[in-house]
Amino acid sequence: MSVSGELIAFFGLALVAILGGVLLITLTKVVHMVIALVFTFLSIAGIYLLLSAEFVAIVQILIYSGAITIVMLFGIMLTNHREHDEPAKGGRGKLPLLLAIAGFAVAVYLGIYDLDIPVQPTALHEENTKQIGIALFSKYVIPFEVMSVLLLVALVGAIVLAKKDDEEGDRS
C-alpha cells in the first residue's frame, strides 16, 4: 500500500473526528463540549471533500458546524444553566465501558474486513451539485416536500410551546 497525501489527510481528519468525539463525552463544561463537536463536524466535512462530495461538505459546514452549534450555544445561554462541578466518579465503570468500546471496534472491523463491494464506475468531479439537484427535484420531490411540511409543523409547534411557557411564566 502506497502512502499518498490523500491517505495522510484522511487519517489526520479521522483522528481529529475521533478525538473530538472522545472529548465531547469526557469534557465537563458544556461550551467546551460544543467546541469539540464543532471540530468533529469540520473534520467530517474534510472527509467529504476527500470523497469529492463538495456540496455535502459545504452543507455539513453550514448546517452542522454553523446553525446547529449556534442553536446549541443559544440554548445553553438562554436556559437556566448553572455551572457547577460534579464530584468525580469512581473508576469502576470505566473498565466495562472500555471493554464495550473495544468489543464494538472488533465487531465493526470483522464486519467490514471481508466486505465485498462491487466496483461501479462513477463520475467524480462532474457537476455534483447539479446531479444532486436533478435527483432531488425529479426522483425525490415528494419526500422533499413532505420533509419541508414536517419542518414547518415542528417550527409552529416549537413556537406554540414557547408561547405557552411564556404565558405560564407571566401568570406566576
Rank of each mutant, 00 (worst) to 15 (best):
T28F: 04
I132V: 15
A107S: 14
G169C: 07
A107C: 11
A67Q: 02
L161Y: 08
V106S: 12
R82N: 11
N128H: 10
V141I: 12
A53Y: 05
K29D: 13
I159H: 05
A53M: 12
P87D: 12
V3D: 13
K130I: 14
L97E: 15
T40L: 12
G75E: 09
L42Q: 05
A107E: 10
M1K: 07
F74N: 09
A45F: 08
L97H: 04
A14M: 10
K163G: 00
L150K: 00
L161E: 08
T122R: 10
G93S: 05
V16C: 03
A105Y: 13
T129V: 05
A53W: 06
M77E: 13
D166N: 06
R171V: 14
D114N: 13
L124H: 11
M147E: 02
E145Q: 04
I18R: 08
H81V: 14
A162H: 13
A36F: 02
V31H: 11
A162Q: 04
L152M: 08
K29I: 03
A100I: 13
K139M: 04
L7W: 05
E54W: 05
S172C: 13
Y113I: 04
I8G: 01
M33L: 11
E54S: 08
M147N: 07
D114I: 02
I44N: 00
V149I: 01
I58P: 00
A45M: 05
V38L: 12
V59C: 00
Y113A: 13
P143T: 05
I142Y: 11
I58M: 04
T69E: 07
S172A: 15
D116T: 15
M33N: 11
G91K: 12
I61W: 00
G103K: 12
E145K: 06
M33E: 03
Q131S: 09
I47M: 15
G75P: 09
V3H: 09
T79C: 12
A107R: 13
V3L: 12
I142W: 06
